[in-house]
């Protein structure tokens, strides 16, 4: 987070002439590229990957071996099976299969990423560049919502959804009976404070001159937002959307409370596959790998934006 806000002024500050910047960049490169630093990075990367490798190895071992020996003894206790994956894929209940829960996860995650982002970008723009009374106070209040623990809101929110209406208006009912709506709304609510705060910091750093120039040319708020603010903040939006996607995909708490029966995401189903008494815990290894396919794919596909978002603009001339 701090990287974001520090990197931005560098990027957009016209005082940073290009020759000097390039020099700093190359200096930074030589300083950071150090044999020992590389070695340390490799060692850390290897250490951090060991548990994942263990999980992967275990996921292909027969249940009997998983229970009696550690994965690191794989060479002494050989055994290979894809049974764990078959079992996990066949898991499910009368209302939902594993494949169905996978689709549910997508159906929950995409809107729960897009909705808060759209709202937060608009709100961040308003807080940064529009003038209205009480602006600072409202912004502080929004930011303060971050310190409200999510657990505090669960029961009141559930009551609201159960009633289906707000001050007599059938708010939830309007979304139909699909049941996804309440999960989307819950995720959106919980994501907004941080999203607004982050994007506000970013949007507020856009040089005043650019916005002023646009206003002088007669651009409306809509035009400024779509033509100037959006393109300039794209890296930040991309970075935050990846974060939000991963949080929602991995979420269990909100799903436990708001996603009932047929709309349950994969995390909820995975939590049940160990059986009533946890006797099938070896299945968690395979389950974990099935569940991280999508986050991994998203991460690798959007990795460029991820890094660019964090270092946004720092390499611009």
């Amino acid at each position: 987070m701090s990287t974001l806000s520090k990197a931005t002024p560098l990027a957009l500050d016209p005082a940073n002439g290009s020759p000097r910047r390039r020099k700093t960049a190359s200096l930074a490169k030589t300083r950071l590229t150090n044999r020992w630093a590389t070695l340390a990075a490799l060692v850390i990367a290897a250490l951090w990957t060991i548990p994942t490798i263990g999980l992967l190895v275990s996921s292909f071992r027969p249940a009997q071996l998983v229970r009696t020996t550690g994965w690191w003894t794989i060479f002494e206790n050989r055994g290979f099976t894809t049974q764990n994956y078959t079992d996990v894929l066949q898991a499910g209940n009368s209302q939902l299969t594993m494949a169905g829960s996978f689709l549910n996860s997508i159906a929950i995650t995409l809107p729960a990423t897009v909705i808060p982002l759209v709202l937060a970008t608009l709100a961040a723009y308003a807080f940064a560049w529009m003038r209205f009374p009480g602006k600072d106070l409202i912004f502080v209040l929004v930011f303060a919502l971050q310190i409200v623990p999510i657990q505090m809101a669960l029961v009141p929110l559930l009551r609201l959804f159960a009633a289906g209406e707000l001050f007599g208006f059938p708010v939830i009912g309007a979304f139909g009976q699909a049941g996804y709506a309440q999960v989307w709304i819950a995720h959106t609510i919980f994501a907004l404070p941080l999203a607004i705060f982050l994007l506000h910091n970013f949007i507020a750093e856009i040089p005043n001159e650019i916005i002023e120039a646009a206003r002088v040319d007669g651009a409306s708020h809509g035009q400024i937002f779509f033509r100037i603010v959006l393109p300039l903040t794209a890296p930040a939006i991309a970075a935050f959307s990846i974060f939000q996607f991963l949080w929602v995909w991995n979420d269990l708490l909100v799903a436990l409370i708001f996603a009932d029966g047929p709309v349950a995401p994969i995390t909820k189903l995975l939590a049940e596959i160990t059986g009533t008494r946890g006797q099938d815990w070896h299945l968690l290894t395979a389950g974990a790998f099935l569940a991280i396919i999508v986050p991994l794919a998203v991460f690798f596909a959007l990795q460029r934006y991820f890094v660019r978002g964090l270092l946004a603009g720092s390499a611009k001339g």
Binding site: N93, S94, Q95, L154, V155, L157, L158, R159, F161, A162, A163, L256, I257, D260, G261, A271, E272, T274, T276
Partner: peptide, 21 residues
């Protein structure tokens, strides 16, 4: 009969009862 299981039944049932769900 629509059966739903939860490993967090003990906490969940109280939350759901209070939440009107």
């Amino acid at each position: 009969i629509k059966y739903e299981s939860s490993k967090e039944f003990e906490t969940q049932i109280a939350v759901r009862a209070q939440g009107g769900n």
